[in-house]
Design a protein around this nucleic acid. Structure first.
Lengths: 213, 213
DNA sequence: ATGAAATTTTGCAGATCACGCAAGTTTTAC
DNA sequence: GTAAAACTTGCGTGATCTGCAAAATTTCAT
């Protein structure tokens, strides 16, 4: 559906991607987004400053463009799975479906994490995107649990799921150890199934004895 | 200790509070922070625009000033309790210690919530403050659970606690029903103790209805 | 009380951001 | 091939936020 849509669509997508990548490149080179201007990004991508702002409202949004994309895909997976699976494990499996570890370079992910972690404006932007994800997902969760979206339980469940996804990914990126990302995610989701007051049984460094899934 | 610190300290605190309140007032009057300028806020509080920016980096920060204050107090309570209590219930009880329902007008809280919910910039600002709280609290949690701050478990626990505090407060503000805030908080924390896949025993609206998760 | 020291307030200038508008350019579709 | 639709660009504008230095205010020692 998005393939045959002609030159214009493809060019737009390419420009947007180029701007996002240019932002990433410059941010790394200059050790932080705050040291990069919209003007520089536009120049790096070969368009005018005005055009940059046609595509992104801010350089923060440009840098987190693929996060936003990812979010959309995750939601699609979630919608699909939520019709055949209890919502909690639908989140876990939708997350595993994303296969970040195969799609992205782990060093690039680490760089990105560091950029975000070091910049208040990026932290805010990312948090804002998480909140948007919350808003988009709450209906799915409410429907799936047979509750209202204003109830407490679906909000807690969704919040827990988002926290789990963010934390486990960050943790795995920082130090994969001998685990796959899917294992780490599964482990993290299991913590909430067990009850949060129950600390995880296996110390995080022991290598064997983890039957996957 | 902060009492006898002379006229200067007191005036600064008063100015800061005045600026924050002015921001709140104007934001309500104009139906959103985006319709208020720093210049207007400064005028309303009787100082120069430059002075406003000496106190707050942005109008969003000004509007969420008391949230920041609250955060600090919560951390103090948490630190105290975490030495005598397991960390999970320390969070719950530290939160209850705050007694928002007694300290703040519920209508004002509702207004504030609506302002935040309707403004992307405020959502980002608040999320940023939550992340700051995360950063400040993670050491306490790690110490209290005997783990490293880079481990997964303390991050999940802290994330769950923050989600619980935010969600239960918002939920209670939106519709207190016949519950106290402390009850709602306790109920919410209990969800995570039980295991997130276990829906709460008492449905929030209909008395029968087995939840079919 | 008084004058010097420390601190705060303020105006000004400058860099950036983000958006509306209208003219110019490219792509599409007939 | 040409007209319509969509995209790019430059310009102008209003707002944000910061540094700097002068003026005003508070503090403190005497």
């Amino acid at each position: 559906m998005a393939e045959s849509t002609g030159l214009r669509e493809r060019k737009k997508a390419a420009t947007k991607a180029a701007l996002s990548e240019a932002t990433f490149r410059l941010a790394i080179a200059k050790q932080g987004v705050e040291n990069v201007t919209a003007e520089e990004i536009a120049a790096e991508a070969g368009v005018s400053t005005r055009t940059f702002h046609n595509y992104f409202p801010s350089k923060e949004a440009a840098l987190l463009y693929d996060f936003e994309q990812t979010t959309g895909q995750l939601l699609a997976h979630l919608r699909e799975r939520s019709r055949k699976q209890p919502i909690w494990h639908a989140f876990r499996d939708a997350m595993i479906d994303m296969r970040f570890d195969e799609k992205f370079d782990i060093d690039a992910m680490r760089c990105r994490e560091q950029l975000i972690h070091a910049s208040p404006s990026l932290i805010k932007e990312q948090s804002g995107q998480f909140m948007a994800l919350f808003t988009e997902a709450i209906d799915i969760v409410a429907a799936s649990t047979g509750t209202s979206k204003d109830d407490l339980y679906p909000r807690l469940l969704l919040g827990a799921a988002l926290v789990t996804m963010k934390s486990s990914t960050e943790h795995w990126i920082a130090d994969p150890g001998d685990r796959t990302l899917a294992q780490t995610i599964t482990e993290a989701f299991a913590v909430f199934e067990r009850g949060i007051t129950q600390p995880p049984p296996a110390p995080e460094t022991s290598p064997d004895a983890r039957p996957h899934n």
